[in-house]
Nucleic acid binder design. Structure first.
Lengths: 250, 250
DNA sequence: ACCTTATAGTGACGAAACGTCACTGACGAT
DNA sequence: ATCGTCAGTGACGTTTCGTCACTATAAGGT
């Protein structure tokens, strides 16, 4: 009466397989040339099956973005677990975001795209909900660092702001910086001469100094410290970046 | 021998007419449901003519975004020309961006979309160049305020940062905040309880305090001052917002 | 007046992408 | 062996895109 053969795990694996192929296609053709037909052609499943997983192209894009956020979560967690001062770890978190953006340009690009209303507007409810959960979880690591900072007195919560608002302040600053600069490698724009890692570093410090988050910039060499910390916590990522011929300048 | 009848001005007018109809369509159907066919149907010109102006849908979107930036420029200029302290005017600039985002959600939404690589990737070179020029011009107002601030000693340029970087720091902060929050009216997210105008206000002050931009938050009631300034410089905009049933809470 | 010529404008059309649905087949239950 | 159910298929109708062969128009020449 109930001959169900749907294996939840296998289903999940298949979904990831489709996502992986889509990522490869974006890397090869650019996100603007991704089509469902091409994805279906790359994958050992039929159109109908693919559409069982994703209600449309936008839904697939959001799924890729969610996948990316999962990957990012891992980096955030490592930054969170690093033994060091709270300000240092917060800075490290933001830089783990940057490392991810440099190492996985396709994922980051898709994440940006997935924030556009024309994508959200055509995605499934479930997928949007998933995005929400993932981003909330991501914020959790940041939230934790701030809690600790307040507990050990290195940070005093400003009047009329709670921890959540502080989380958001940090997140939006890093997001704005990386989003606006990641695309610009060489453009004859008013934004030339801006190096994403340097601007991110500066802006983090401005924000943290504005919050009076100890130790202040004037009291500590955050720059050299961050360099060491990154080498310690993200050695592989740093190596991969070097292999890409990219160097971090800040 | 040379019967040219192309009137540059009329051509421009027609382009704006097409853009206007597209904006109306986005407002009605949502940006995800905009199609060139629908635009052509709304406009007294044929498909071929429309495609003379815009090489494709993405190019049209970028054109709308550029139109939006022009509108925004006017607001920025008014903030720039306001007679008041430099910090106050900078704050006002950022809020003019917010007013625009609230008053013209379609334009702002399109602006966000137009930053996505899948749109840029399919736009014409000329249009991208135009975007660049417009954004540089926009930055000009911000740049000017900072120059003045440095001149009158209310702001000291931090070590290892130039004016351009400071401009960018401000821009990316405001962009990140508004972009991440503008979509969220009521969502059951980790980002609930965040009110865009309040967060923008807080983050501006954190950044400016971090820069030691006088007068500091502890020395002045920026909040009530900003309220007055907005009423003075943007009375119409404020009225329109009220008519929309929206109220600024910060 | 009439023809010439070059450009503006048109919309039918083919290609491409989308998303659906009637069908197939595989497997467990009876 | 038969039946019922559901995963999987891919052909097909639809939508959207963008082009291009053609028409209309207007200025200049004769």
């Amino acid at each position: 009466m109930t001959p169900r053969i749907l294996d939840e795990a296998a289903l999940q694996a298949r979904e990831e397989q489709i996502i992986d192929e889509a990522i490869k296609l974006i890397a090869k053709l650019g996100i603007e040339n991704l089509t469902m037909d091409k994805v279906v052609a790359k994958v050992p499943y039929s159109k109908g099956t693919v559409y069982k997983h994703f209600i449309g192209k936008e839904d697939l894009l959001l799924a890729i973005s969610n996948q990316a956020v999962k990957l990012l979560s891992g980096l955030f967690l490592r930054a969170f677990q690093f033994e060091g001062g709270t300000r240092e770890r917060m800075l490290l978190s933001n830089f783990s975001y940057l490392l991810y953006a440099i190492l996985h340009p396709v994922l980051f690009q898709t994440e940006i795209c997935a924030k556009a209303p024309n994508v959200i507007g055509k995605s499934s409810e479930a997928r949007i909900k998933e995005q929400d959960v993932l981003e909330t979880k991501l914020m959790g690591a940041i939230f934790g660092i701030i809690e600790e900072a307040i507990a050990d007195k290195s940070l005093l919560l400003p009047e009329h702001m709670d921890i959540q608002q502080l989380c958001f302040a940090n997140w939006s600053m890093a997001y704005g910086t990386i989003a606006l600069l990641s695309g610009e490698v060489e453009q004859c724009s008013g934004r030339t001469n801006l190096i994403v890692e340097r601007e991110l570093f500066n802006q983090c410090n401005l924000l943290f100094d504005g919050l009076q988050w100890k130790p202040l910039t004037k009291d500590k060499q955050h720059c050299s410290e961050l360099r060491k910390t990154i080498e310690q916590v993200f050695p592989n990522e740093l190596m991969l970046i070097k292999e890409k011929g990219r160097e971090l300048n800040f």
